[in-house]
Design a protein around this nucleic acid. Structure first.
Lengths: 349, 349
DNA sequence: TTTAGCACTCTTTTGGGATGAGTGCTACCA
DNA sequence: TGGTAGCACTCATCCCAAAAGAGTGCTAAA
């Protein structure tokens, strides 16, 4: 849709690179000196004027340099994403950091989030929608009160989920124990994606139709698993890194941004979109809509991690629009790949 | 140790009240107008000079008003703590907010922390050292890998704790099931404070001496419970409220403070001190030592919640030295009392 | 002992001038 | 015709000095 000559592209890229580095508006002199092609500032100025007309650059005031607009950034990112590469040493560091993590999946995910935040010096996020708990391992019903049942659900990968369920009728622990036995037998190793179907089948089977006990057990299990599926967990680490970005020097902005983090459900929705939308790396820039209103000046780089072809969750980095994408994109991408591997191993065992 | 005339006291209190409200140094004119006793600014100035000499007030620069020192604040707090009272409506609001919380203890504690932060417009904290999980309810051993066992431990109050344990020898699930049965029978309803002793006794009993299975089970349970006891959980909510305080307008300070929150273990130690030290409400002011170095300008108001006479945990509010103590102290105190009641009920059932 | 008065101190605010970065435009060159 | 040098012009920012304002300490008087 937008026609750029090669020179336009070079200038745009030079401006963005410089802007990302310094955070200041970039002037024509700077580009002229720095760029490979030897042209005078005046020439650059002409190009800049063109780019501004196309809506790719913006001038804060008459006598300032240019900064890229979101549209300009987007164009740049589309081109950078082709040539992403991560150095071997950096790959090693990521591998090392993740491999020594404990077996506990929750810890692994939190660790990944922390890792991203430290490597990118921004906030790291990992979303794990529970639908993806892979395979069923164990369920346990415990009586807390006359009508109050606690259900503990554990996936093969070792992720624990707990729910409370209110029961209309009073119930004794002995009966709950029978439920546990029955359901554990029924669902052993069934992938979570097929659990609900399996329960439905069983409910229509003979046992459940004629035996009240089985039918109750199935109902309870169904409810508990429903809760577990709906519940996602999200790990956000390194928020304080954001304070280092000079663009958030004002306490006002800072508060707005940090507050947005506190609303977990919003964050989950946000990342869930990213998960659904993408098969590979994805970047959402502030004003491009999907993000919250409080985040106009923020940006999210995300990538799904998966098992085979089914996505399990999504991880990424949140920071200001002005981030070092050329570094962050490959980091996010590699981390997603590597985490996928780790999870595969954990679930195999 | 410090001799204050009644007038000294009134002036000190007036200055502190005003300072807490405005955050600005307070001048003699302001006090003269505001205070009950009718004296001229000049008189006040004399008193102020005295108070300053005693180290209770401080003058940022020659031509500024006075602000209280930590020492002055402390004196004021000691006197205010006697006359704390909370309005009936406020009590009702706290009751209402907590009573509708879900049965889930973890949620209850997080909710309490949130409540404190919202009511006081500062950060709220709740520390729950696991030693206090009250009574044993259920344990479950699950085989994740050949040498990898997951242990789920549940208290009567419904708090779930999970640990991974590595086993030297390979183990099968069937054996673990036997362990679960045995330990559950053994420890049913035993208060956590006595669990370790109970295990020790059993270890020396006949069963364990002659049967390898029992002895293994006891060992594993012992380790798992050890982990559970050492692990404490802490809930910190409403950190962004701190951003509203004008004293933290500078990003530098803000980062320092928010970063201190990220180190959970430090926070746990801090609150643990508060738990051990006190039987009632307790206030730690920045420079008084216990607090972290990063927190010189902060203050913690805390109170333990308990069951009968044994303290279960501690809750409180963290904010700047300049807080509305006259409101926060009774809130913290009442919340602690009320939470104690709630927990008693939860553990009874 | 209290108070009124006053000189004094120090911070904060205000405004104008200098500075400098960067632009747009025009005229000129290859 | 595309590129370049030159130049006038525009703003934000820095700096400094003057003014304003808040509050004190001290002295002398009631």
């Amino acid at each position: 849709m937008i026609e750029l000559t090669q020179r336009d592209q070079i200038v745009l890229e030079a401006i963005i690179t410089d802007y990302i580095e310094t955070g200041e508006p970039v002037g024509s002199r700077t580009i002229s000196k720095r760029s490979v092609m030897n042209v005078s500032p005046a020439t650059i100025r002409n190009v800049m004027a063109d780019l501004e007309e196309m809506g790719l650059l913006h001038q804060p005031h008459t006598s300032a340099g240019r900064i890229p607009t979101v549209k300009g950034l987007r164009l740049y990112l589309d081109s950078i994403m082709r040539s992403r590469q991560l150095g071997g040493t950096e790959k090693e560091r990521i591998r090392g950091a993740l491999q020594n993590r404990p077996q506990d999946i929750a810890e692994l995910l939190r660790g990944t989030s922390l890792l991203l935040s430290q490597f990118c010096r921004q906030a790291g996020v990992v979303l794990w929608p529970r639908q993806s708990i892979a395979s069923f391992k164990h369920i346990e019903f415990l009586r807390l009160g006359p009508n109050d049942i606690m259900v503990i659900l554990i996936s093969k990968a070792g992720l624990v989920h707990q729910t409370h369920i209110e029961s209309k009728e009073e119930i004794v622990q002995a009966e709950l124990d029978k439920y546990s036995l029955y359901i554990n037998e029924l669902l052993r190793n069934v992938p979570f994606s097929r659990v609900k179907q399996r329960i439905r089948e069983e409910m229509e089977g003979e046992k459940a139709l004629f035996d009240r006990l089985f039918s109750r057990a199935l109902q309870l299990a169904n409810r508990a698993i429903q809760y577990a599926i709906e519940d996602s967990s999200i790990y956000i680490e390194g928020k304080t890194n954001l304070l280092d970005n000079p663009e958030f020097a004002h306490v006002e902005q800072m508060r707005r941004i940090l507050q947005a983090f506190e609303d977990k459900s919003k964050m989950i929705r946000l990342l869930d979109e990213a998960l659904k939308a993408s098969t590979g790396i994805q970047i959402v820039l502030g004003t491009e809509g999907e993000l919250l209103r409080e985040w106009q000046e923020m940006s999210l780089v995300s990538a799904p991690f998966r098992r085979g072809d089914t996505p399990l969750g999504v991880l990424g980095v949140i920071g200001p629009l002005r981030m070092d994408y050329s570094r962050i994109i490959p980091i996010v991408e590699f981390t997603a790949q590597f985490l996928s591997q780790m999870l595969e191993i954990a679930d195999e065992a």
